[in-house]
């Protein structure tokens, strides 16, 4: 169990929150003009990084507000919490090496080979 610092209520336990997946994914402006592959990428493909991951979270059992959170997926450390609409902070995370030498980007997700979206 770890604590999350809600930008509205303050520190609460993680069980009060629910994760809404990757943050900062903008809906395409002209969906009819997109190919099926482009639309599928927007809908389904997500990063699976080892390191800083920007996520949306909801304080479900508190103020019921959505906010963004930057988390180091290698250590589960919460690096930054910020409100919706704010720009994602540029952060670096400490990524400990693993004995298996796994890559910093998950090999199972093809979309992660693409460059950062912002």
């Amino acid at each position: 169990m770890f604590l999350i610092n809600c930008p509205y209520c303050g520190e609460r336990e993680q069980a009060e929150f629910s994760c809404g997946g990757e943050a900062h994914i903008a809906r395409p402006k002209n969906p009819p003009e997109l190919s099926d592959d482009q639309w599928a990428e927007y809908l389904f493909l997500r990063k699976n990084e080892k390191g800083v991951h920007y996520e949306r979270w909801n304080h479900e059992y508190g103020c019921r507000q959505w906010f963004n959170l930057a988390r180091n997926t290698a250590t589960d450390e919460i690096l930054k919490v910020y409100k919706m609409g704010e720009a994602p902070p540029k952060l670096k995370a400490n990524i400990p090496a693993t004995p298996s030498g796994e890559p910093s980007i998950g090999s199972g997700n093809l979309s992660t080979s693409k460059k950062d979206r912002f």
């Binding site: 169990m1 604590l3 209520c9 303050g10 520190e11 609460r12 336990e13 069980a15 009060e16 059992y61 508190g62 103020c63």
Partner: peptide, 19 residues
């Protein structure tokens, strides 16, 4: 509780929603 309620509910004007 995991969160420190004593810190959150310090004064007689404070409330806290939680699980």
């Amino acid at each position: 509780l995991v969160a420190n309620l004593e810190k959150i509910l310090k004064t007689n004007f404070s409330v806290a929603q939680t699980i």
